[in-house]
């Protein structure tokens, strides 16, 4: 087993996911299965193969430095759970 219960809890915390206690075992098992599956790849000899940074055969896609219209503020804020004076409003950030 590569992934422990503690790893799952930590990743869940970092990802802001709430995992019911009863399901932690299930996810631990599933995540381990993913990694074991991916391990098949490590049996291949990759000597002399360049690391892949991107799966598409593309490079140097640039944009000219030209201003394009921005969104109307009302529209930009329309999906915000809370807003105030044209700002997005968010809950308390720090422990206190």
């Amino acid at each position: 087993m590569k992934i422990t219960r503690k790893d799952v809890e930590n990743v869940a915390l970092l990802s802001r996911l709430e995992i019911p206690e009863a399901e932690v075992e299930t996810y631990t098992g599933q995540l381990n299965a993913f990694l074991e599956y991916a391990d098949v790849l490590t049996s291949l000899d990759t000597k002399g193969v360049e690391p892949t940074a991107h799966v598409l055969p593309l490079k140097n896609v640039f944009r000219a430095d030209e201003v394009k219209p921005s969104l109307d503020r009302e529209l930009a804020l329309s999906n915000a759970p809370e807003q105030e004076n044209g700002y997005f409003k968010v809950p308390k950030i720090m422990e206190g």
């Binding site: 944009r63 030209e66 394009k68 921005s70 044209g86």
Partner: peptide, 27 residues
């Protein structure tokens, strides 16, 4: 000191009204 943001065409000008230099990419 570019005219536009790094990944979209919104202006980089300082001091604009809040949330007026935004678009789907930078949001």
């Amino acid at each position: 000191k570019t005219n536009t943001k790094i990944f979209c065409g919104c202006p980089t000008t300082f001091g604009g009204e809040q949330n007026t230099h935004v678009c789907p990419v930078c949001l």
